[in-house]
Simulated assay, not measured.
Amino acid sequence: MTKLIDFDAYTDGAKRTESHREPSTASLTNFMDALMLANLAAELLDLYKKDLFYGRGIDAAKREEILTHMANTINGAAGPNDLPTDPGVPNVNPRLLHAVIGKFTEAGEMIQALGEAIETGNLDIVNLAEEVGDDKWYDALLLDELKKLSGGSITIDRVLQTNLDKLAARYPEKFEGRLAITRDLDAERAILERVAS
């Protein structure tokens, strides 16, 4: 039987393999285009999630708006040689930058595995499990940095409990699709703010 590992021990192991390289001077304009496209892709998938699991239906106008914005971003994107005076990615916390981008790229690999399973009928559970582990590696770095930035108040235990508290406020009895759509965002934010207090 495999020994269970707690998240703090996992974080210590993850930090051992963390890159400490400062971000390069990648083009800020191109980087912001990539962030915009990632955000739009997430918004588009969110429309489908809400249709598939909450019964909301696809908002055709919103879908078209997202696709148009994506196309405009791609068509207006600067090429690598079009930015001689581009200042590069600004001095952002490199650990947060690395962790957040890493989580998105790992999610992309999970989406790729899901797409392959839909196309072939075969799910590679070993690959999917690996991507879950990689995602947790980025969670470890992200939470470690948030813990430092919050003076120690943001911990995995507090994050998980706060998430359960938010969900209990959203779904007092059990999951209901209508409650997933008609959320009290102000009340949820008040609960979420407790994590850093």
Rank of each mutant, 00 (worst) to 15 (best):
V92R: 06
L97F: 07
G88T: 08
A60H: 06
L97G: 03
P80C: 05
A77I: 04
L123S: 14
A99M: 04
A77C: 12
A71M: 13
P87V: 14
I118F: 12
V92H: 02
T85C: 00
G88C: 08
P94T: 04
A77P: 00
R56P: 00
A61G: 09
V100Y: 08
G121Q: 08
N91I: 09
A117N: 03
I58P: 07
E116W: 10
A129N: 10
N72A: 15
E130K: 13
D59M: 14
A129Y: 00
A113W: 01
L97P: 01
M110F: 00
P80V: 12
E119V: 06
E65R: 10
I125D: 08
R95E: 14
A129C: 05
M70V: 02
L97N: 07
H69V: 03
N75H: 08
A61F: 02
H69F: 05
T105G: 02
R63S: 11
A129P: 03
Y138H: 11
A99G: 09
D82V: 08
N72Q: 14
D139M: 06
I74G: 01
E65F: 02
E130R: 10
A61E: 12
N81I: 07
E130H: 09
I58D: 07
E131G: 06
E106H: 02
D134F: 02
A77E: 00
G57M: 05
G115N: 15
K103N: 10
Y138E: 01
N91K: 14
E109S: 06
V89Y: 04
G57Y: 05
Q112E: 14
G133K: 03
E106T: 04
H98D: 14
N72Y: 03
L114F: 11
R63E: 15
N127I: 08
G108V: 04
T85A: 13
E131C: 11
I101H: 06
I66W: 03
N75S: 10
T105E: 13
A77W: 03
D124N: 14
A77F: 00
L67M: 13
T105C: 05
N72G: 09
I118W: 07
H98K: 07
A117G: 09
T105P: 00
E65N: 07
A129R: 10
N81P: 01
V132F: 11
T85S: 09
V100F: 12
K103Y: 02
D59W: 10
L128M: 11
E106M: 05
A71R: 12
K136D: 12
K103E: 11
T68C: 02
P94H: 07
L97M: 13
R63W: 02
L83N: 11
